[in-house]
């Protein structure tokens, strides 16, 4: 353990030195002189951040990368053994045989595809609503933002109660008014993920609303006035002034909501449990590592997930950033 962490440190330092070396060479070509004392000073300023990054970012990443290629029973770290790509082939087999991993991918994909647009549109709608300069609309802002501050666990149990199959539960008693028999939305395989999508969007959208609000306040009001004189109605002004003005924050929001959505776990875990209709990628990964005590396999899944999310994020940047993501 100690040796390996020292090796990682050495590799890290070597890469760092190489980057600095390239930098110095580039600077020399442009005729900028590097002074040794300045470089040392700069390094000393960076050192605290580097130490933290080493322990809390670099080491965990490298170790979990490494565990992906081992068989690592959770309770017997002494029995760790290198098994090459076995974990990965196991994972692909699990997908091919329509096992739990395939279910997890399906559920997660369903969740992401629905929750990202829903949550963003909801957040934008709330932001537009709150953006009116009216007395007391700060109350609305607070209301919409409150779910963000409340712990996921609390809201999960809250919604579990509200959605419970009992006839007297909040939702079912409302349905009862319309003569609809009591439903078990969370455990019915047809509605589990949909319910989780709605609850997640409700819980999360307040945060994006705030970001949209700050984006909206960055759009000059003269642009709206110019658009009115140019012959735009309210809808055209939204399309031609508001949306382009929100583009920079939109990119940020799409990426963060997407990444957050890919990691969905707490809600299905606390509201439904480990079921075929509720398992998600993160939940599967956690379950394999801590219940199945197979940390190596779990790490391999994490690695695959990271690569996948990274790739999609890059594509989103390309698509949404367009030619002018300079602003």
């Amino acid at each position: 353990m100690v040796e390996s962490s020292l090796i990682i440190l050495a590799v890290f330092l070597a890469i760092y030195a190489f980057v600095v070396f390239l930098d110095v060479r580039k600077a020399k070509k442009r005729g900028v002189k590097y002074h040794f004392r300045q470089a040392v000073t700069a390094f000393l300023f960076l050192l605290p951040a580097c130490v933290l990054a080493y322990f809390f970012i670099l080491l965990p990443i490298v170790y979990s990368l490494g565990y992906g290629f081992t068989k690592f029973p959770l309770l017997r770290p002494d029995r760790i053994e290198f098994i090459g790509f076995r974990n990965f082939t196991d994972a692909f087999e699990e997908i091919a045989s329509d096992g739990w991993l395939a279910k997890a991918i399906k559920n997660t994909a369903f969740f992401v595809v629905l929750v990202v647009p829903l949550q963003i549109i909801l957040a934008l709608a709330l932001a537009l609503f709150c953006n009116f300069k009216a007395k007391g609309n700060v109350i609305f802002k607070v209301c919409f933002f409150t779910p963000v501050v409340i712990s996921l666990a609390v809201t999960a149990y809250l919604w579990k109660e509200l959605l419970s199959p009992a006839e007297s539960s909040f939702i079912n008693s409302i349905l009862g008014v319309f003569g609809i028999p009591p439903q078990d939305f969370l455990n019915n395989p047809d509605t589990t993920m949909t319910a989780i999508v709605l609850i997640s969007a409700w819980q999360g959208c307040g945060y994006q609303m705030l970001i949209f609000l700050s984006g909206l306040s960055g759009i000059k009001k003269e642009l709206y006035e110019a658009a009115r004189l140019d012959g735009c109605n309210a809808w055209q002004r939204f399309l031609r002034v508001t949306l382009p003005g929100l583009r920079p924050v939109l990119l940020y929001i799409v990426i963060t909501v997407f990444i957050g959505a890919c990691r969905i776990m707490i809600q299905p875990m606390l509201m439904v449990g480990y079921q075929e209709n509720s398992v998600t990628l993160s939940y599967y990964m956690w379950y394999q590592g801590f219940r199945g005590r197979n940390v190596g396999y779990s790490a391999a899944i994490a690695l695959l997930m990271t690569i996948f999310i990274g790739a999609i994020t890059l594509i989103q940047r390309k698509l949404l950033g367009g030619k002018d993501n300079d602003r």
Binding site: K220, L223, L229, G245, D324
Partner: peptide, 20 residues
């Protein structure tokens, strides 16, 4: 009458060009 139907054009102090 709504500004969009007034058939007037305005030049603003800070130009108000559409930045995108």
């Amino acid at each position: 009458v709504d500004p969009m139907n007034r058939d007037m054009a305005m030049v603003f102090q800070n130009y108000a060009l559409y930045p995108h």
